[in-house]
Design a protein around this nucleic acid. Structure first.
Lengths: 407, 407
DNA sequence: TAACTTTAGTTAATTAATTAAGTAAGTCGA
DNA sequence: TCGACTTACTTAATTAATTAACTAAAGTTA
């Protein structure tokens, strides 16, 4: 329900928008449930059977959905089952990293079709990355009907797909979306990588049953994706969830950002490496620390334990501020979760309001590494299903231009 | 636009809902602008003139709006002006405090009509407060058409209007909404007092131009109201914005909650009193400290300065997490704002991401004390305007039961 | 096996949006 | 002062939702 919070809320609805929203509700249910009868669609969406018949007729005509046989009778006429035509079109998902770029192809149900990796000796310029993505997409287009591209990258990313600033990539004010969109003629959607990760866990993973949850990733840095009322919240300039440099302790250790006691200085790979230095570990690779902890090394265990404590303190602050239903913990360092999750949980649950904590669920991400690419691919899929039907053409696996998804 | 963030989003729209939403859009514009022509309403809402004529006809019939003369011609036919009939009904706003209860009557435009105060020797029970509100509302009903009651109180308040826990009032699991609603037969809406304050500033005060803003109140405690996409965010159990006990410094001073270094222990009246103790102030009233600061007392100024620094640190964490467009600073301690706002601002702006800070506006609340009651009164007004037209009867200033607003 | 019940899906009449074309009532320039 | 233009508002036809009544095709029971 739309919430008239301020008198500035002017959501008006036209016949056309009504039709689009109802069409989307139907494709949503099909997306979630797979094969479904018209009658069941009516029950699931709350629309009338007549309306469902009407809308599905149009969808069948466009070939975005298809009839896929009959279901079992439950005491009456057999239902005709309908499903999304997953081969109607494909999307490209991209993850940009410091030293490599992952490109991949997914179908409309977000199943992986193909995956490629390109390594770079040094951090590539945005121009190089644009060129690479262009080539990969054009390549896919010779065989598939690419209806959109989704890109995940670290840093602040504006609504219009401009990378405002990315400390890891060392890019500033780099336009990625517009040039790619102009060249490729399909929608190109860019978002922060942690947001993409959160989207993937929210659609298919540990977050799928929550309307309000936080997804905290721990690895080289610490980030958070914020889901409020089932929607990813991006903030006024896409900076929501940038919790890495929130202050946990003004007297704490120096962070690479120049401040003291940032969450990232207290709970990330940066923290782990610093601690390994302090404790005189010879080998400074994280994998070694994880291995040592697994073998029972007290110092290693203690480091993770303290990281969990710090992370818990940071998450506790988030929980008290946002009061989510759940916290999903993800990121590369989940490989050592067993060594820091209990001290983390203790800190969160003991030090947040008991009433809030009682309802708070703390779970680990379910999709692993692939969530990053999956989330990037979800961006154009989501975009596609929220477009009006006009402009979608019924050509399956044949189109070359990929322009069908554009309105 | 509705954002299809997850495939679970099933917002369907019926003819009826379409009509309700469009009606709301029109009453919204009237609410904001006052006297407006049908043509201007069409421009403002994006609806067609035909639709606006249609809807306003129904609204005029119900007497919720009225024709109020003609406007100036701008080169064509004179517009017939329409406005909300502010005397269609009235709402009661209530603020519950430790030692007193404020009750008030507002018209539909949320203009104050009447205000009363009832003092208690000691903290009243919820039963006593229910009785009091019941009497006041019944009293108003003899003269006015009360269409709803809004209540603001501190603590965690569930969606259903139950006070889950209120440390200041020492109430736990107290039902206020349901018994009152049954007795009075008008909608009774309860929310956290900081949320009500935020609503008031968002509708009429310093927040009215922002879609994403935080409203931080400083007084006996520290609280925050979170507005995201123009909607107040309450969290999964109404606990969003409870920032008073987020940890700023694990090695900081003890807080009354038993933890160390909470924001409340570092930036509230509690902090000020503790500091006055430390510095050996004889008189421990806050008003004295403010007076001393005004007279240039170095110690007093220093205390406020440090409070501003701490508060800034806490707000900086919020800003990095939520990336709002603006922070609205309010609460009782705004009377000493001049002594802590600069150190607060410095901390926020210097230590949040430069890009975010550049777009961040820090402003002070505009409505002062009256925002608490005003916000409480907005709750039923908002509720009333989001109801469908059915059930609203055209009797103005005559009804006795107040049931007209219910569907 | 015929009659009844249940479930699936379609058709007809009403409502409320749209666009498009109309009427109403003013200003303005020659 | 008369016609041309503007602006405000209404009316008519189309679209897409609703409800209600229908047909279709199964299962269930007497």
């Amino acid at each position: 329900m739309v919430d008239l919070t301020g008198p500035n809320d002017l959501a008006t609805v036209s016949r056309e928008l009504m039709r689009n929203l109802n069409t989307r509700a139907i494709t949503s249910v099909l997306f979630n449930r797979g094969k479904t009868s018209r009658a069941e669609l009516a029950r699931q969406t709350g629309l009338t059977q007549a309306t469902v018949s009407n809308i599905t007729a149009k969808l069948l005509e466009s070939s975005l959905v298809e009839e896929v046989g009959e279901g079992q009778s439950t005491g009456g006429r057999k239902p005709t089952l309908i499903d999304i035509n997953r081969n109607y079109g494909q999307v490209v998902g991209v993850k940009i990293e410091k030293n490599f770029v992952l490109t991949s192809l997914f179908d409309l149900r977000v199943n992986l079709i193909d995956r490629r990796e390109t390594h770079f000796e040094e951090v590539p310029s945005s121009g190089e990355v644009i060129k690479l993505i262009e080539n990969e997409v054009t390549n896919y287009e010779s065989e598939y009907n690419v209806i959109g591209v989704g890109i995940g990258a670290s840093g602040l990313i504006s609504d219009s797909g401009e990378i405002i600033y990315s400390p890891i990539l060392n890019w500033e004010r780099s336009k990625l979306g517009k040039p790619l969109e102009e060249e490729l003629s399909v929608p190109v959607l860019i978002d922060n990588d942690v947001n993409a990760f959160t989207l993937a866990e929210g659609w298919f993973g540990a977050g799928k049953n929550y309307r309000d949850f936080l997804c905290v990733t721990v690895g080289e840095g610490v980030g958070a994706g914020i889901v409020i009322n089932g929607s990813l919240y991006r903030g006024s300039i896409g900076g929501a969830g940038e919790i890495g440099h929130t202050t946990l302790n003004p007297d704490g250790p120096m962070c690479r950002c120049g401040e003291r006691g940032c969450l990232e200085a207290l709970a990330s790979d940066y923290f782990l490496v610093n601690e390994m230095n302090k404790r005189g570990f010879g080998d400074k690779r994280i994998s070694t620390l994880v291995a040592e902890a697994k073998e029972g090394n007290k110092f290693a265990r203690d480091i993770f334990n303290r990281m969990g404590h710090n992370l818990g303190l940071g998450i506790k602050n988030l929980v008290n501020t946002l009061n989510p239903e759940a916290v999903v913990l993800g990121g590369e360092r989940l490989d050592a979760a067993e060594f820091f999750i209990s001290s983390m949980e203790e800190e969160i649950l003991n030090h947040s309001f008991p009433q809030e904590a009682r309802r708070l669920e703390i779970v680990t991400a379910e999709l692993g590494k692939k969530a990053w690419l999956l989330g990037a691919a979800i961006l154009p899929v989501r975009n596609f299903f929220s477009l009006p039907l006009t402009g979608r053409k019924g050509k399956t696996r044949t189109a070359r231009t990929g322009k069908e998804g554009l309105v």
